[in-house]
Each structure stands twice: as C-alpha cells, then as structure tokens.
Design a protein around this nucleic acid. Structure first.
Length: 138
RNA sequence: UUGGAAGGGCGGAGAAUCGCUUCCGGCGCGAGUCGGGGGAGGAAAGUCCGAACACCAAAGGGCGCGAUGCCGCGUAACUCAGGCUCGUUUGGCUGGGAUACACGCGGGCGGAAAGUUGAAAGACUUUUCGACGGAUAGUGCCACAGAAAAUCAAACCGCCGGUCUCGCAUUGCGGGACCGGUAAGGGUGAAAAGGUGCGGUAAGAGCGCACCGCGCGAAGCGCAAGCGACGCGGCACGGAAAACCCCAUCGGGUGCAAGGCCAAAUAGGGAAUCCCGGAGCGGCCCGCUCCAGGUUUCGCGAAAGCGAAACGGAUUCCGGGUAUCGGCUGCACAGACAAAUGGUUCUCUCCCCCGAAGAAAUUCGGGGCAGACAGAAUUCGGCUUACAGCCCUUCCAAGACC
RNA sequence: GGCGGGGUAGCCAAGUGGUAAGGCAGGGCUCUGCAAAAGCCUCAUCCGUCGGUUCGAUUCCGACCCUCGCCU
C-alpha cells in the first residue's frame, strides 16, 4: 500500500512524478452535481456512443480536476438495475481516472444493453470509447 | 421415504484489498489526513387503507361531499408514570393510557356445494364464501319472452257450471257463441305470490287438517350478536340499496416538493392594538384573514446552507425446548439530496451436474459455484403484489420395512 | 418522494346496467376501356387483466398491469 500518508498533502495538485502510483479516489468534489453542469457538457461537448454506454465530454484546461457524471434512465430497468449500472460506470472511471491525456468533464449515459453485464465488460467498453476519442495518454 | 395442502421461519458465512458515505476522537490556519465505530428489505416495492407529525385561522358551527355499517376481544408509532444503569439526549427498559369505522383472532347469522335422513318439502353434518344497517320512509328499475313482472295480482291454453244455438240422433254425445267460476295442470321467464300429503269441491282453492316453512309474542340460555321450549296467526311479506336514497357513526383541507431556522449584501418593510372602508378565502355560508390610516414596537427575507430520522445485532453460559424463545454478558448503531451502502480476489458451506461403490440409506472423487424477488428518502401499523433455494409443525395420499 | 388522469377494431374515438354509434384505414361488389372519385355491403364478442355484486357488467365495486400528466 504505497502513496499513503507521507505524500498525501501533495496529491491535490495533480502533478505527481510520472513514476509514482496515485490513489484512485472519487470523492464528491470529482462529481458533477448541478443540472446545468450536465446540460452544458451534453450540449457543448463532444459525443460518442459505443457498446453499452454513451460518452459526452468537455475538455478542461490543464491542471484542473476531472469530473464525472453518470446518467441512468428508467429505460434501463428497475431501481436495482439502475444502481448497478451507475456503480459499474463509476468504478470503471475511478480505476482509470489518471490515464487521461487531458482533464475533462465526462458524462456517461448507460444504454439498455448494460443490464446483466459484469465489471470487466463495462470497463472494456469504457476504455474503447476513451481510446477512440483520443482522451487516453499512450 | 416420496408427493401434495395449510401455517410459520430463514433469505449465505468468514477474510484480504481498492473505494463511497456518516458519526466520534487526534493532528493541521485550512484544503485535508490518521485512528475507531455505523451503513438496505421481507417485502425497503405498489401507494391501496389508517395513524402520527407539520402548515393553512385557533380548525369552531351549519349545509354539502366522502367513508364506514352483525357481535366480542386484541394490537403501532404516540403519550403518561416509575425505578434501573452498558449508555444518558425528551432514549432503551417496566407498567399503564389513547387511537381504531386500518387490521388480526374468535363467535353469530346468511348463501353455495357435497354427504346423511326423508315419499316430498325440509332438517342435520362437513367444507367453502360473505362490503353482513334499512326494500313497511320515499322515488325509480326488473330488458326479451310471457295472458300477467309487483300489491285488495293476473284467465292465453286448459278444467268446471249456466244460457242460446247447430249437427248426429233420441234425450244423451259433440261443436260454436256469450255469461260466470277456477291459480290444481300446460306454456314463458333469472323470478309467476308458501311446500308435501290427505280431505273437500261442479272444477278448484289454507277452504279444512297434519307435518314443514313464514310472521308475531315469549319462559329460559348467552357479556353480546343471537338461539329459543311454548303459545298465537291461515299466510299477509318478490329481487336489487356494489340504483338514487333513509338511518346511525366518523371525517375541516393539504401533504415533508408539508414546513422550521438563518450570515453578509440588496430592497424598505414587519409585528401588536384601535376604528371605519375596500379586497381575499382552497366546495358554499356563518365567519375568518389581508390591505389603507392612527398609536406602540423591532426585526423580515429567495437560492445556497443548517436542521430533522435512532433498538436491536453478535458471542459464551444458564433455563426450558419442535423450529425457536427468554435471561445474563455486552454494544450505542443508515441519513443521502444527479442521491452513499460498491469493485476485485481467497476460503468454507447450501445447492446443482457428472462418474464410481452399494439392495438402499449413504459414502468417495471431479466440475459449476450463492445462482430468487428486489435498493431506504418524514415516521409507524396494516393490506396487496413479486420471490431461486432451504428449515420446522400439522394434516392427507401412496410405497417400503418391522 | 407525493398527488392526479386514462386504457373500447390497425388508428381517432362515442356509449355508462339489457349483446357496442360514427369517421379514417382494410376486404368485397357496382360504376369504367383501366383507374380515381362516388355508392352499397362487410370487419369488436378477450371493451387492459383477474375476481365480486346482479337474472344479466364495457358500464357498479375491489385488486393487479400498462400508460400519461402535475408539484422541486
């Protein structure tokens, strides 16, 4: 368990040394909270659909924090299915949040086909979308 | 042992690691960070009932509207009192009280089906169903069919009698018309105005009688609904109130998106009281509220923010035991708001599949590996609906063994 | 989360105790050399589903399913 208490205060500025492993946090400050945030990203940003999800993103200047919002509509299913989809999408983003080439505001919309999928499939779809969008650092 | 029915219970366990959320404590000016604790269900669901709570005027009176409707018992949040100590806050705990026209259990009565009995009507038993006050308070309805469909019932066919007449023919038989009697029989219908039998009669009829049913009264039994020995009445009383309605009882309305608190800045108003005028009110009216003016007085306020939520889990031992339950020890217990309770692994069980041994129960090996319905949003009780698999109790059926 | 409205033919819909109007679409026929238009005939029986009340239910009552709105 490296990168814990000793260098914790320095984590905030997003400019850690390239070799160091960063923590994979996803607190409330990294989420989109207001309706206007979602509307801005989905109207002004770029959009790409693939597999079981649709991605909307809006590039941010370097040095800013990435932000995530997840949309799970009633078309996906009942409350259990919607919560499951939201958790899988959020977990996929959390594990790969430091692999972006540039900070973005990202809105992930779940499609019907996400019902019944496990974490590995959702993660694969998310990485494919980000790769095609050119947001991943290689 | 297998299968079925009814009722009740459970709805995997242990660990590692990366995260989310909340509370407590330490460090830090702070953003944070470290340590510790908590973090979905039996239905959290549907929102179908009822209650608490909040605001609207303090929720009051009348009309209207809505709901409920056999009897008894029981039950929640809530509230009052008490003592106790793991904890301490208006708490848990113990004992009362209250709300039930949510609901549960038991009883009564009624309907239906099956069985027994009987010549039949009916009676009794079992099972099952019942939104179960009133049809003599009133108004309306009962299509089609049928003569007649609801009140001193009603003559289409039929049955009986009389008068006239015709035919055969010889004083009877048959036909027709008219007048009258008749609800036994036919036919229609969901339903035709007590049933069966005997007498009776021109034919018939509760016209009379017996039994049954019905109505009225009633000793006695039961807390009550109600049951009812016995007596009287020839019988008058169709269905439907989940048609309008009448009676009794209950309910004011709206719902946490109800509502409360609040720094700076901005606007300059707010509250109490007095009098007249105007306006508004959420079913309508009484009535109430608001506005303008006088007097006294000092706070009001959108978003954001704050605030609100709490009882049962595990282990050892003891008691009794069918699952289970009680006591002791012991802990302080979800609170988000684009909305936490998740991801990845490992181990063990439950269960499933395959193979082997065995008469069978079962055992061994390999594989799959928690796999149903489903996610808190003010709280509580109920109802309804969804649900893989497992456990317990009772009953029924079949089979095997003794 | 809370509170309301609605489900009738392929579509739009009336009906509200006695066997379901009308229009468009579809099918058949007439007319025409062939079509269009017009005219005539036809098309519900599972009135969202399941129960109950009633002699009888699309209608009245209850439960469930689907669907559309309103309140931040």
């Amino acid at each position: 368990m490296p990168a814990q208490s000793p260098d914790a205060p320095a984590r905030r500025d997003q400019t850690l040394p390239p070799g160091g492993t960063r923590r994979l946090r996803l607190g409330r400050d990294l989420r989109l909270g207001q309706n206007r945030d979602f509307a801005r990203v989905r109207q002004q940003g770029e959009r790409l659909a693939l597999g079981c999800l649709i991605a909307n993103w809006h590039r941010l200047p370097d040095g800013a924090s990435p932000k995530l919002g997840v949309v799970t509509s009633k078309r996906i299913g009942n409350a259990v299915a919607r919560s499951r989809a939201r958790r899988l999408l959020r977990e996929s983003f959390r594990q790969h949040q430091h692999e972006f080439s540039q900070p973005v505001e990202l809105v992930l919309v779940a499609r019907n086909s996400i019902a019944g999928r496990d974490f590995a499939e959702v993660e694969k779809d998310l990485l494919a979308v980000l790769n095609r969008a050119g947001l991943l650092k290689n």
